[in-house]
Amino acid sequence: MFETRGFNLFMAFVCHQLLVAAYYFQYVEGMDPCPLCIFQRIGVLAVGIWFLIRGIHNPLPGSIARPVYASLGLLSAILGGVVSGRHIWLQNLPEGEVPACGPALDYLMEMLPVSEVIGAVLAGDGECAKVSWSLMGISMPGWVLLFFIGVGGLMLFSLYNHFRQTKVTI
């Protein structure tokens, strides 16, 4: 079921809708994203691209493309989950331990090499520690983390099925 073209295209659509929701909150509700939010969007986009490619290609059972897509999707989900986890950690810091707000992401991109920008963004700042929206007591990064955990589980299940069906030993 999780290997079908329809399911993969549906999951690509889910990723699309998550990005639409993020832009709705940004442009309609006026909630400006922090740098960690932007990186989470990139993670959702990466997962969506892998689901879209996997859905369009629709590799046959036993094809080497299936574990490749699943591995790349799992990697994207893990990286996105790390960013979401870091964001949640910052949001739960005591007020005295929250880092000071830093420069905007576009300024960092102009002034620093990409590797330093990634390090600065993952360090987080006071802007990232603010919880401006929650549903059932879970903040936006929490919901995104749950999404990444779900996708990671699906990718692990896909890898397990592939290797079980092809009788490949690791």
Results as ranks from 00 to 15, higher is better:
L112C: 04
P94Y: 06
I88E: 10
H162W: 12
L60N: 10
A21D: 03
V47A: 11
K167R: 10
K167T: 00
L93F: 04
G43Y: 02
N161S: 14
F148M: 03
H16S: 15
A46D: 09
G152P: 08
A120P: 07
G30H: 08
I42K: 12
G153Q: 03
F39D: 03
L74E: 01
R66S: 01
I78R: 00
I78K: 00
A100R: 10
I38Q: 01
I53L: 15
F148I: 07
M140S: 15
F163H: 07
I138G: 15
L79N: 04
E110S: 08
M111E: 15
G62V: 09
F25W: 08
V151L: 04
E110T: 09
V14S: 07
N58Q: 10
S115V: 08
Q26N: 13
D32W: 02
P61K: 09
D32C: 00
G124N: 12
G81T: 11
P67V: 08
I118Y: 10
A46P: 07
G6V: 11
P61A: 05
S76R: 06
Y23I: 00
L154M: 15
C34K: 09
I138A: 15
A104G: 10
L93S: 05
G43R: 07
F10E: 14
R41Y: 00
Q40P: 03
F25V: 00
A65Y: 12
M111P: 02
P61R: 06
L75M: 03
H16R: 04
R41K: 09
G119W: 06
S139C: 08
G85D: 01
A123T: 02
Y160D: 10
G48R: 03
F13M: 14
M136D: 11
A104P: 11
W133M: 13
L19K: 05
I149P: 10
Y27Q: 06
S132Y: 04
A120V: 11
T169K: 01
H162L: 00
I53F: 14
L36D: 15
V14A: 11
I88N: 05
V83D: 09
C101W: 05
G124F: 08
F163L: 02
S84L: 02
S63H: 07
N161L: 13
V117T: 05
Y69D: 01
E110N: 05
L52T: 07
K130F: 13
E97L: 11
L145K: 02
F51Y: 12
G150A: 15
F148H: 07
M140K: 08
C101G: 06
G81Y: 01
P103R: 00
L45S: 04
L18E: 14
